[in-house]
Each structure stands twice: as structure tokens, then as C-alpha cells.
Nucleic acid binder design. Structure first.
Lengths: 184, 184, 184, 184
DNA sequence: GATGAATGAGCATTCATTCAT
DNA sequence: AATGAATGAATGCTCATTCAT
């Protein structure tokens, strides 16, 4: 499954072949079908693995100790780190995003992921409001949507140079901070 | 070619079959090969068509009359309009974006598109500075990168409801405006 | 037709494409079909051209002045010259020879060519007998068959070096001479 | 593979279709590709089979008991037998011969076959010289070349009647004998 | 659990030929 | 007489899936 994940990252769904997965796993392709009856099953497993990978290892987890503002900033840092260190994650996520427009099953998963993400952003916002560092009149949902939009925009900029990405991370984080701390 | 474009939007590159293009065009598949010797040639033509479609018909063109601030806001409106009215454009653009990480030819085209886009954003920024409505100390390139990041993030939110998208457009435009007019 | 001939020599019947003939002739492939309704018609024309080319320009023609022995020797020289100067002739002849085992039309043409050849060899033998330089008890037909066998064997040795071919020509001619002048 | 061999003999490389091989073998054409990934692989296997078939089952093998002269005669008988009993061998050999002028891989194989053949003829010549039945001053290489020329000429006469072929075999063998036993 | 072998359906591409002009 | 466009019927090859062992 991890091999499949890697192959999707490398070749996209377009060039993703079950035989190659089996071959790299050192098993017969029929054996692969024993565990994953159809290619779709394998893809599903990969998606679940990715989603889990995406939820876990969140940099922000280590940042819970700081204030809500800090935690928010870490959401951006986290995307930056993923862009640098595990770009496959973003690539496969992009593949899935594109595929979701055709495959309802994946669309649903993506929706769930996005909602989970929005939930955690909302939690940060609520905490910030509670702590008195964020504007109390924030529309939680639309603000969270906006912040996720910033994060997604950031994640799609993988073609930029490392330095540019770092600047962008800082810039986006600053923008979000300004937003939630308000104009006045 | 337009049929191919539509099919790529519907099924992605993964499920894109030359036979289906011919069939929908009401011609023999050999006839399709008469005009596009290889599948790649057809894809290339589609990409060019898309890029042109993407550059032209820009909503902001009609907004040149207003000030730079207005023009900037129209960049966001434009993405919103495309999301509503020609979502295939964004979908195929997403496909290409994903494909670019593997296909150098497409990567180059995407780079050119992105640079063209950045150029036009920079032009808006310069105009705004000249007009005295934007902060004069803006770092043109990194600001343009940031604004494009916002625009791309916006474009990737096609799974949201129509109302949410409209809010997001307004929010992102406001954010960009704040950015370029600056706190102090 | 000459272009077709050249192409068959270059690529063999296997790689012989009517479109390529038209293209090299600078005409549309439909125009080619106007003159040669089917590929087979074109091949037939090429075969006729080749057969004519093969009958004409015979080196031995210039050697009629010498005696029958001389004339016989020239039959071998002639093959040697063709191997050196117009190898395509032998190549296409080989192609046809191979094709004859499947295509009755070509088989018939080849038979006619072979019979014509045998006829001219027989004429030489008769002349030699008349001139008293060849054994009078020769079985004309089987001797002619034998000599043609030598000539064909020679023609099939195109993979040898030039020097080896020359030796072979001399050797085969000597052998034939010995044969027709007899052991005693 | 044997079916492929037969089909090449019947239709030549020109009309040789992998689908037909599969069909005659009673298997799916994909199954054929399972064993021979490409058509070229299948052809290679056929060529190897043919070459082996050509080297083995040599009539002359049974004639080793007689003297060198006998052995030499058997080389010709052998070609005669092949013409009568396994004409496909000669036909496919002809195909290969023709193909060799375009396909370096086959050219090499043909060269090897020819050299092997020449080697065995040379061995016969040496034996004959040792036994004192052949002229001691024979130029081994050029004589072997000449004898192979006779053999090849013989092999190309498959269009003759059975009786004519038999005469030719005897005649060619006699000619070769005369050659190696000397001028007088 | 595992595998070698087999397969159906499909794919891009090719090519001689035809057709309307 | 010539041609651009069109086409039917292949062709070698691929791939997810299945089957017997």
C-alpha cells in the first residue's frame, strides 16, 4: 500500500499500474489481487493511508503549548514543511483533489478531510477568541474557509523556489493573523 | 479539439480516450488521427486552447477603467466567475497542474502561464503604486506571488457551495486589498 | 514506379508503403491510386520494370563478338557486375523469389524470367557445340539448369567481400567452362 | 513457436501476424504476449529454432563413416533432401536472407550460420586432403566459399521439378568432386 | 496464502483504399 | 488529372482481472 502510494505520487493515477505495485513489492500480481481484489480497493487503501498521514504528524501538534496565534501560525508552517519534506503528500492530495470531481467516493473522502481540517481551524479560532487574542466577532465558518483557502493556495505553489516558499509561508501566516486579529 | 477539452474535463487524462473524442465528433477514429497524428498532439492542442481561453475573456479586462484597486478586486471576481460558469477550465487546469510534475512540456507551459499571470498582477501593483493607492514600498514579486497564492487557493475551492464561494471571493479580495494598501 | 522499385530494394515488401512512394514522388497518395488502383498493381509494374532491367543491359551482349566460351564466361561476369554496381536488382530479385512461393502471379513471372534465362544459356551452349568448343554430347536442358544454379548461387553471395566475390566469379566461370568442355 | 515458424514459411514476414499465431495455437493473443513480450521476441525464437533445425538433422552426419568424398557428396544430398522434405526451411531461410540486408541482428545470425557452414565444409576439405583423396594445394577458404555457392544455388532452385532437382544434386556434387580432386 | 498462466476488452496507431470535389 | 479528407479493418500491445493449482 505504501508502494502504491509512492507510485501514485511518482506517476499519477494516469500511469499507476497494479502490476508495478506487485513487482516493487516483490510479489506476484495475482497475490496483490488476493489482498486488494480490485484496483479501486487498492486506491481506497492508499487514500485512507494518505488521509491518516495527513492528519497525523501535524507540526501544529507541537505548537499547542503556545497561544492560539502561535497555533494558527503553525498551520502555515506545517504546509511549508510538507512542501519541503514530503512533497508526495501534496502531489497525491492534488491527484485526489482532481479525481474527486469525477469519483464520488473520493469526493466524499476529500470532503471529510476538508471538514476535519476546517474543524481544527475552527477550534483554533475559538481558542483564540476565548483567549481574547482574536476578534470576538469572527464568523467562524467563513473565516475558517478563508484560512483553508490560504493554506490550499500555499500548498499549490510547489513549483516555486524554496526561498520563495518560505517567504510565502510567512506572508500568508501574517495575512491570516491580521485577519483574525482584525482591522482595528 | 473542443470535444477533447470537454472530455479531459469530464474524465481527466486518466480516462481520456482518443476513440471517444472521434466518436463524439461523429468521425472515424482514423480521421481524428489524420488531424492529430498522435494523442499527444491532440493534448497539446487542447492545452493551447485552454491557455488561450484562460488568458482571454478576462473579466478584469473590462475593469481596466476603474482604478488599480478595482482592477485587483476583479482578479478575484474573475476566478469566482470561472468557478461558477466555466468550472471545466479550473478542472483541466488542475489536471495540467498535476501532470506538470511529470511532463516537462506541460510544466513549461504551466510556468509560462503562471509567469504571465504574475506579470499582469505586477502590472496592477505598479499601476496602484503609481496612482498612489497602493503602498509604495511593496516588494512587487513576493506580493504578486502572494496574491496569486490567494487566487489559486480560491480556485481550488470548487467543492464549496455557490454562496460560500461568493463570500470567499469577497473575503480574499478584501484581504488582498488590505495587503497592498497596508496597515502602515 | 522507379521510386517504388527503390523502396522495395531498401525496405523489402515488408516495409513497403504506398504512401511513401507517393510522398517521394511528390504527389498525393490518392493520385498514386489514380494510376495504380491497388498496391498490387504498383508491385506488378515494378516487377515488370525489374524484369526488363534484368534482361537489358546484359554485359554478355557486348561479348557476343568473342566465342561461345567467352560468352559463357560473361554470364558470370555479368552477375558479378550486378552484385557490385546494382545490388538493388539482386535484392529485389531475392524479394520476388521469396514472394513467388506465395504469390502465383509473381511465381509465373519468375518462371518466365528463369525460362528466358535458360533459353539464352541454351543458345550459348548450342553455339559452343556448333563452334566445336563445347562437348557435343551435352544435355542442353540439364546443363543449362546447372549453369543457372551456379549463377544463382553466385548472386546470393552478396554478403561476401568484393575481393571474395571476384574470386568466386572466376571460380564459377572456370567450373562452368570445365563442365561444358568436358572431362576428356 | 513452431506455429510461428510455419506461418512465416507460408506468408513470409510480410503477412506474419501475431494474432494468427495465437489463434492457431488456440490461445488468446494476450497469452502469446505473455510468453513473447514482443513480436520481435517471437521472431527471434523462430530464427533460433530454425538455425538449430538447420544445423541438426544433417544428412551428412550419417555419412561420416564414408570417406571425405562421400561426406562432401552428402552435403549436396542434404540440400536435396531438405528441398524435398522440408521446403519451409529453405523458404524461411530465404526470408531471413532477404531480411538480413535490413536487420543487423538477423544479418549477424545469418553470418554466423554461414560461417558455421563454411567451417564444416572446410573440415571436410581438410579431411579429404589428409586422406589423400583431395588435391593438397586447395585454397581452403575460397574452395569452401565456392562449394557453398553451389549449395546455395541448388537451394534456390525449389521451383524446379523433383526429377530436375535430383539431376541437379548429382550434377553439382559431381562438379564439386571434380573441383576438389583436381583439374585433370 | 501464493503463483504462473491465461484472458477479454480495449488502446493508440497504421495503411490501403475510397470519396467528394 | 489531382487532391484533401475520410474510413474500415486491422495490428502489436497493455492491463486489470480470473483461474487452476
Amino acid at each position: 500500500m505504501r508502494i502504491a502510494y509512492r507510485l501514485i505520487a511518482e506517476k499519477g493515477f494516469e500511469g499507476f499500474r497494479s502490476r508495478e505495485v506487485a513487482s516493487l513489492a516483490g510479489i506476484n500480481n495475482a497475490t496483490l489481487h488476493y489482498y486488494f481484489p480490485t484496483k479501486e480497493d487498492l486506491v481506497r487503501a492508499v487514500v485512507e493511508y494518505l488521509v491518516q498521514e495527513f492528519s497525523m504528524n501535524r507540526a501544529s501538534a507541537q505548537a499547542k503549548e503556545g497561544g492560539a496565534a502561535e497555533e494558527l501560525r503553525w498551520e502555515f508552517e506545517d504546509v511549508g514543511i510538507r512542501m519541503r519534506e514530503t512533497p508526495e503528500q501534496l502531489i497525491v492530495m492534488g491527484e485526489l483533489s482532481v479525481r474527486a470531481s469525477r469519483d464520488p467516493a473520493i469526493a466524499q473522502i476529500m470532503r471529510r478531510v476538508q471538514e476535519g481540517w476546517r474543524g481544527s481551524v475552527i477550534a483554533i479560532l475559538e481558542r483564540g477568541i476565548r483567549e481574547g487574542v482574536f476578534r470576538p466577532d469572527l464568523d467562524l465558518i467563513s473565516t475558517a474557509n478563508g484560512i483553508i483557502t490560504l493554506l490550499k493556495g500555499l500548498g499549490s505553489q510547489s513549483r516555486l523556489e524554496r526561498k520563495e516558499v518560505e517567504d510565502l509561508v510567512a506572508e500568508m501566516a501574517r495575512l491570516a493573523h491580521q485577519w483574525v486579529t482584525g482591522p482595528f
